[in-house]
């Protein structure tokens, strides 16, 4: 099953990469009020159903993919093809 994990810097956490990109975008003439940079992890998960896959990916996030001190994560699961 295909899963996508979006890892983002938590709200209020300084994101110097995002700030640098924001200021570059402004220099290019774009009107942006903020840029935050995270990470995308695409996974192929071996699981019986969506619930099992979600539980498995959550464990991956807790153990490795995100650092809860500074990052939040979101899990998207692709509906399995019939």
């Amino acid at each position: 099953m295909k899963a996508t994990v979006l890892v983002r810097p938590k709200q209020g956490i300084l994101d110097p990469q995002g700030q640098a990109v924001e200021s570059s975008l402004r220099q290019l003439g774009f009107s942006v009020g903020g840029a935050r940079i995270g990470r995308v992890v695409d996974l192929d998960v071996d699981a019986a159903d969506v619930a099992a896959a979600r539980a498995e990916v959550e464990r991956m996030c807790e153990q490795l993919l995100a650092n809860p001190l500074i990052e939040s994560y979101e899990i998207e699961l692709a509906e399995p093809q019939a």
């Binding site: 110097p16 990469q17 640098a20 650092n67 001190l69 500074i70």
Partner: peptide
């Protein structure tokens, strides 16, 4: 820090 033996996290330098 990642192993949880010490508190905190080391982030990208502010200056990048």
């Amino acid at each position: 820090c990642e192993a949880g033996l010490l508190p905190g996290v080391l982030r990208r330098n502010e200056s990048l």
